[in-house]
Design a protein around this nucleic acid. Sequence first.
DNA 1: TATAGTTACTTACTTTATGTAAGTAATTAT
DNA 2: ATAATTACTTACATAAAGTAAGTAACTATA
Lengths: 103, 103
Amino acid sequence: MDTPQLCPRFEKAMSIMSQRWTGLVIYQLLNGPQRFCNIESAIGISGRVLSDRLKDLETEGIIKRDVFPETPVRIEYSLTDKGLALQPLMKEIEKWSQDWLQI
Amino acid sequence: MDTPQLCPRFEKAMSIMSQRWTGLVIYQLLNGPQRFCNIESAIGISGRVLSDRLKDLETEGIIKRDVFPETPVRIEYSLTDKGLALQPLMKEIEKWSQDWLQI
DNA sequence: TATAGTTACTTACTTTATGTAAGTAATTAT
DNA sequence: ATAATTACTTACATAAAGTAAGTAACTATA
């Protein structure tokens, strides 16, 4: 038929956002920089998958990882500008969920 | 730590949108009602998974399924109001992808 | 009449992703 | 010497997704 072809950039964005946990990790980091174990307990993701997701998101330039050589070592994850730019999208998801989902 | 707890409605919205293919199926249906094989070829999803997704989305009230007893039978999928309400969200993904992703 | 074509699926099987639980490294506290 | 802490990794089990073939219902063609 004659539906327009998918824009590769849009497709990429979708593939990032439609990966399990990615959205919640970003949403959680909108609360500010935080550590691995905090993200883990806040959203209920397993450490194994969180480790994968943080690596992927860092590779995509959406989050950054800062190491503070304290004891025990403190590692903070935070959103880059690219990651912060996802806030309006998160707001839309919030809005839709408020308007259309029951508890 | 002291990050706020996740809103169950937001979490539900995220679980819908972060399932693989769901976003693209909805995006595709923003072009108007269309048939199974059209969605399939437009976004490159396998029939097996598309079948699952369409059932899930119908259960969620995001799409509806209309049967036209022609030959061969025509079955059209389209967005409900709840599904159409996801358009602003799709626009945000488009915008972000334009602003932050390279080709 | 037999064969092929069409759409919308389903089924069986393989591969990939995710969940669970235990383990590791580096350091400090007890 | 043992336990505690954080940020992971590893090994293994289960769930989700991909691939390809099959099915049902009907029509068109040879």
